[in-house]
């Protein structure tokens, strides 16, 4: 059941991105920025939470989920440390993803070289 829900929620979020790409000529970078920011806002307003409860990885793996984690982290930071938590919380909540991307990015760059497209 988890898998069906994750598939549908995750797939649906990607379809929204695809429609934006095909119809609006927005560059992928702009779409990603909008998705993350939207994730932060929806997360802060408590609208994304039910989606995460329902779709689980289907809602957390796509980039709005990254925004949701940022917002959730910022709230948690404020709860624990006050105002400074607004600054520490977001990055703390997403530290694993960011650090992994930097670290693995570096490792992969050392190991592999880009290949010619066919």
């Amino acid at each position: 059941m988890d898998y069906i829900r994750a598939f549908i929620v995750g797939g649906f979020i990607c379809v929204i991105g695809q429609i934006l790409m095909d119809k609006t000529k927005l560059t992928p970078a702009r779409i990603l920025v909008s998705f993350v920011t939207l994730g932060v806002i929806l997360g802060a307003l408590g609208i994304y939470e039910p989606l995460v409860k329902y779709g689980k990885a289907g809602a957390t793996v796509p980039l709005p989920g990254f925004g949701y984690s940022l917002a959730k982290g910022a709230f948690k930071g404020v709860d624990e440390y006050g105002l400074i938590g607004a600054f520490t919380g977001g990055v703390t909540g997403t530290a694993a993803g960011i650090a992994a991307a930097v670290f693995f990015g570096y490792i992969m760059a050392i190991i592999f070289s880009p290949k010619m497209k066919k």
Binding site: M21, K25, P28, P114, K115, M116, K117
Partner: peptide
């Protein structure tokens, strides 16, 4: 050269983009 032009004008070769 496709690869030198891509990296200067567009995206890295391994970037997963979709070409219109």
């Amino acid at each position: 050269h496709f690869a030198s032009a891509e990296r200067q004008y567009r995206f890295p070769l391994e970037y997963g983009g979709q070409r219109p």
